[in-house]
Each structure stands twice: as structure tokens, then as C-alpha cells.
Design a protein around this nucleic acid. Structure first.
Length: 416
RNA sequence: GGAGGGGUGGCCGAGCGGUCAAUGGCAGCAGACUGUAAAUCUGCCGACUUAUGUCUACGAAGGUUCGAAUCCUUCCCCCUCCA
């Protein structure tokens, strides 16, 4: 492996973060000479960060670990425009209040991975609404406008692909890349930021910022992107039973998060260990040698480490323990989703399908019925054959009824 | 402003007076096979205490008809082209 001068670039490349860089050698040199300030922008498209954001967060994590200063830029301003990159449709416009709520909620996600504060390497949080909201149209156009040509903008993937597919691209969205470029320059001014990180889909926007910096501030800026993470079967990362994989525990429990990683495809395990855990590379190399059935051990490590990073040691251990009890012993783990009910709720008994719905294993009663009919439902590990089976409190073992939908989804009804 | 083309279930996309809860594909769920993997095969995939039943649904509101996603009217929204 080609050695790099800086620990930063060495780490990022060896762990598989590099996709493209505007000037890798230059950046390497600069990083070896002193502290670099770098940022990643996050638009407030939801009230929690999700797993798609995780790669870039990990990049910031390593940035900080190798002695540099990360900035998390919240897109309070740019969210009002909507990034057209990688989308065929205009994003739904959201109001200020929603954006601010989302930003506040997202912030919690970062603190697990980055240390914020006032020290030289402490992370900074910024919000581009601070400067974008104040912009005056004419002065802005006159300072920034001359540096962007429509010719160039039309060749950007985000624009070109829309046009080729004959999907509409509004003027509003068309401006997004300009604002992102401006963000970069503004962060340079305010914090001496010289590097922007992002996913490969951000390459175009990032390059615009780098060029803008050179033109109006005569500053050399760098762009660095990581690969868009897909599973080896080509699917986008982050889809799960419940939809997106969220980082906030109230939207996606530590147990679910653990299970998400536990179910990683074989071909992805090593890549994910490098990207999403902080395990040393030689340790990962050891896990890489596992084959066949043994790969499951590597998956457990992956699940434990990722969950530990996000939710902490205790939550990770609990999740692992629950998974072990549930899958390896067919028992009941403490972290399984639990619904509390009273014996009064049961009355003379509740039909099996209704119980499945109440436990959250089926969204509707019809779905619960179908699940039972399809032979996928279990009550206390016994296959349910009769969807109308009247379940009474006597079915409980130690005050608990275990319900399962398929092999992987389990829930507990606790009766008091 | 003018001309043309559209709006169908989570998405794509057929249907163009009854046989339409609506073909097909994707996504999703379950079963089989496995290793809590992938691939493959099979079933399910609007809701309702499951009923040869009811209700909701093909942009919105009216109308024609025994009967409309399909025809007519008005309205809303989107796209393409011309200027």
C-alpha cells in the first residue's frame, strides 16, 4: 500500500473512504504540515440522521482522531432550496420551523462520533442559514454570478441527468450548487476551512466550491468524496423492515440497529468493518480470513462495534445479549420490542391476529391474518395455525407472551 | 399567450363502458433451502373479527348510464413544443 505522509489520508484511504479527491497529494502534504479544518454539509431532510449519513460522519470522526478539526454544517439555508443531486423530483419544500426542529434533533446524532468544544481539534457546528438567509440578491449575483457559467452548470450530473430524463428542474434547485459553493467559501472565511468531504454524489457541488474559492478568495481548497455505499447485491444501504435505518434511538432502537448490521451480506462485512467501526485494520484483517459459517462471528463483531459507537457500550451489550438469547437459544431477550397490556385488556381473550397487530408485528389486522395464513406467525415459538385462536392470559409464561413474525422479528407482550 | 400530451395502488406502468380491488415489473412480507448471508423457487401484497359480504380507491367536483378508472362538463396540477 502506497504510504501517505499524513495520518489523515493514510487512514482514510486504507479504510476505503477515498472515491475522488481534487488533489490528493496536495491535501496529503497540507495535512502532514498542520491542522486542517474540514466540513460536511447535512441538509435537514428528516428529523434524524440515517445510515446514509454515517460514512461522512465516520470521515469526520477520523479527521478529528488524526488531529484535525471537523465542522458539521447544518443546511438550514440550503434545505430551503433542495439539492437536486441524484433525484428526479423536486424535494418538498419545508418551512423554517420544521427545519429548525429537525436540525436540533439531528445534532444529537453527531455528538456520539465527534467531540464538540473550543479546543483546536474540537468540532464546530455551523448553520448556513446564518449567512444564506441574509443574502441580497443583486450583490450576491454580482460577486458570485460571474464565476459560474451556465455552460458548466448544465454539464453537472445533477442537472444533466434531470434534463436527459426530461424531468423538470426548477430554477430554485438549479441554484443549489451555487449556494453550496458559497457555503464553502464562507466557511473558509469564518473558520479557515479548506476541505469539504461528502458522498460521491456531492462531487459536482464540491468541485464548484473549490473553484469558487480559488477565484474569489484566491485560496486553495480541497474536495474529497467517499463512495456511495451500496450492498454487494447492489441495493442502496439503509433499507430495513421499518424503512430507513435511523441513528436516533427513538426512531430505531439499539437492538434494531444491532440486528441491521448483524444481517449484513457476506460480501460486505469487511468493507463495512473498515468504514463503520474503529477497529484496527490488523484486527479486521484477522476477521477477513473467516469463511463460510464463521463469517457470522465477524458479523457479530460488526454489529457490536457499530452499535457501541452509536449507542454506547451498555446498549450494545444489551442488544447483543438479546440477539444471542433470541436467536441462539430461542428464548426471550430484554431488548425485544415490548408491549405492555393488562389482564383486563384481555378480558375473555384476544384473537391471535389482533395480538400480532397490537405487538407491532403487523400494521393492520388484515396483514396479521395473512401472516398467520402464510404460516409465518408464532406464539411462544409455536406456529400459529388458526388466525382466530383465542389467546388468553393463561398463554403467558412468566407474565410474557412471545410473538414472532418470521424468524427475525419478535415482540413481547407483557401482562400486568 | 398558442398548440399538443398527461395525472392509476409505496414506485414504475397497463387498462380506455361491465368479467376491475384494477395486467405486468420493482420494492416489501412470509414459506422452502441455508449460516439471523446471498442466490433460487413458492405464496401473499387496499381496509374491515374473513364475509360467495361491506367500505374505500384510478387528480377534484358534478353529469350521462342499469353499470364509469374508462364517456361528457367544469376546475386543479404537471410535462413538451412554439413565441
Amino acid at each position: 500500500m502506497a504510504a501517505y505522509k499524513s495520518e489523515l489520508i493514510q487512514t482514510l484511504t486504507s479504510r476505503g473512504f477515498l472515491h475522488q479527491c481534487t488533489d490528493l497529494e496536495g491535501l496529503d502534504t497540507k495535512a502532514s504540515q498542520g491542522t486542517i479544518t474540514a466540513y460536511v454539509g447535512y441538509d435537514a431532510t428528516a428529523d434524524s440522521l440515517h445510515i446514509g449519513n454515517l460514512v461522512s460522519i465516520m470521515m469526520l470522526h477520523w479527521l478529528q482522531q488524526t488531529g484535525h478539526r471537523p465542522i458539521t454544517l447544518m443546511g438550514g439555508g440550503t434545505t430551503k432550496i433542495g439539492d437536486p443531486s441524484g433525484r428526479d423530483e423536486t424535494r418538498v419544500l419545508v418551512d423554517d420551523a420544521t427545519i429548525n426542529t429537525r436540525i436540533a434533533s439531528q445534532k444529537r446524532g453527531f455528538s456520539r462520533f465527534l467531540k464538540y468544544g473550543d479546543g483546536p481539534c474540537d468540532a464546530i457546528i455551523a448553520n448556513n442559514a446564518e449567512w444564506l438567509d441574509q443574502l441580497q440578491y443583486i450583490p450576491f449575483l454580482r460577486t458570485i454570478g460571474p464565476h459560474f457559467t451556465i455552460n458548466r452548470m448544465l454539464t453537472m450530473d445533477s442537472v444533466r441527468l434531470r434534463l436527459e430524463r426530461e424531468q423538470p428542474l426548477s430554477f430554485l434547485e438549479f441554484n443549489y450548487m451555487i449556494l453550496q459553493g458559497y457555503d464553502f467559501v464562507e466557511l473558509t472565511k469564518r473558520f479557515g476551512c479548506t476541505l469539504q468531504l461528502g458522498g460521491s454524489d456531492q462531487w459536482g457541488n464540491i468541485v464548484q466550491g473549490v473553484e469558487l474559492g480559488r477565484r474569489i478568495a484566491q485560496t486553495e481548497l480541497f474536495g474529497f468524496t467517499c463512495p456511495l455505499i451500496t450492498t454487494s447485491s447492489g441495493a442502496k444501504m439503509g433499507k430495513s423492515v421499518q424503512g430507513a435505518v435511523w441513528l436516533n434511538a427513538d426512531r430505531f432502537t439499539p437492538y434494531d440497529y444491532y440486528q441491521f448490521w448483524r444481517n449484513t451480506e457476506d460480501g460486505d462485512v469487511v468493507r463495512f468493518l473498515k468504514l463503520f467501526t474503529t477497529l484496527p485494520l490488523d484486527e479486521i484483517a484477522r476477521l477477513e480470513k473467516l469463511t463460510g459459517n464463521e463469517i457470522n462471528d465477524a458479523k457479530k463483531v460488526l454489529a457490536l462495534e457499530t452499535t457501541r459507537l452509536l449507542h454506547g457500550e451498555a446498549a450494545a451489550q444489551d442488544a447483543a445479549e438479546t440477539a444471542r438469547k433470541t436467536f441462539e437459544q430461542g428464548g426471550i431477550g430484554d431488548d425485544l420490542p415490548t408491549v405492555e397490556m393488562t389482564s383486563a385488556d384481555f378480558g375473555a381473550g384476544i384473537p391471535a391476529w389482533s395480538l400480532l397487530q397490537k405487538a407491532g408485528l403487523a400494521e393492520t389486522n388484515s396483514e396479521a391474518r395473512r401472516l398467520i395464513r402464510g404460516g409465518g406467525a408464532k406464539l411462544n415459538d409455536q406456529k400459529l395455525d388458526d388466525e382466530n385462536l383465542n389467546v388468553q392470559t393463561s398463554a403467558a409464561v412468566n407474565g410474557m407472551i412471545k410473538l414472532s413474525a418470521g424468524k427475525k422479528r419478535h415482540a413481547i407482550i407483557k401482562i400486568s
